[in-house]
Computed example of a mutant assay.
Amino acid sequence: MATISMNIPFKHRPPNLPDNRQMLDRRLYLLGKRLTRDPDLKKKYVTEIHKLLADRHTELVPEEDLCRADGCVWYLPHHPVFNPKKPDKCRIIFDCTARANGTLLNDQIHQGPDLTNKLIGVLLHFRQEAVTFTADIKGMFHQVVVNPADRDALRFLWWKNDDPYNVPLEYRMTVHLFGGVWSQSCANYAVHRTVEDNASEYSNSARQTIKRNFYVNDCLKSVASVDEAIYLVHEAWRYKIPPCMKLKDYCSVEGFTSTSGCRIAEMLSILYLRMSGPLMFRQLTM
């Protein structure tokens, strides 16, 4: 599978970031107290940290870079977040909005162009044909690698042997972050650029699907026949469409293919029951 690597689009190079290690030490201390009080949460948190390491989404800071003091180092606090629909799954969020010495990381980085398809357009295309299917890109932001020169701006601390009573070690993320103001633009650009660079390898239908039928990491696609849908899905799996991404969880109202056994697609807070029925929206509560 192809991999794409991109810089963090800092507004200034070098970015001249202040030392925020003291703020991070305080946040890590509070996280340690919380995990110590809640062994079940600690177990889930440790599992996610180990997963980041196993997937090579994070790495130990090389010894020669530990004392780096050139304005390119920033430490990210992190905390757990839970989805009410998946109470047993813990997601680690790195806080790109944490402020230290009047500075926060997201303010130092360009947001980038809005390359996300308009939701209304994706929904209208989804309603055009009789057969529909959906899919999403697994860990979209984490599939775009950060170039090594910028990784020290994504440092974080974690304890040796997962024990809050031990001295913390310094890690740095190797991929773009959920919560980074720049990440969505970079991920969308990665998808479109890799398709353009390898256009001869994919059918026109596949290219149009990527350009028109994705809303961030969610694909909502309709085609005229079951055979066409099966062909497109098989092409996606065989040729890794998009080529730098891993697709997962195909689901169809026709039931022709499904990795999860699901027959009702619930995505983007839209409950879609049948093509003959109306679109019904569920209001989000913040």
Results as ranks from 00 to 15, higher is better:
A2F: 10
N7Q: 00
N7D: 10
K11Q: 13
R13P: 03
P14E: 00
P15Q: 00
L17G: 02
D19Y: 06
D19Q: 09
N20G: 04
L24P: 02
D25E: 11
R27P: 02
Y29C: 05
L30I: 09
L35R: 15
D40C: 08
L41Y: 05
K43Y: 07
H57R: 00
E59P: 02
E59M: 07
Y75E: 00
H78K: 11
K86R: 08
D88P: 02
K89H: 14
C90S: 05
C90L: 13
C90D: 09
R91K: 12
R91Y: 12
R91G: 14
F94V: 04
C96V: 10
N101F: 04
G102E: 10
T103L: 06
H110I: 06
R127V: 00
T132N: 07
A135C: 12
K138F: 05
M140T: 08
V145F: 02
A149F: 04
W159D: 11
N161A: 13
P164R: 14
N166Q: 11
V167F: 08
V167E: 12
P168S: 04
M173Y: 01
T174P: 01
L177D: 03
F178L: 00
N188E: 15
A190R: 15
H192V: 13
R193E: 12
V195D: 11
S200C: 04
Q208R: 11
N217I: 07
D218W: 08
C219N: 13
V223Q: 09
E228F: 05
A229F: 04
L232Q: 08
V233W: 01
W237S: 04
G261R: 07
G261P: 05
C262M: 04
C262G: 02
E266F: 10
L268E: 08
L273M: 05
L273E: 03
L279G: 00
F281A: 06
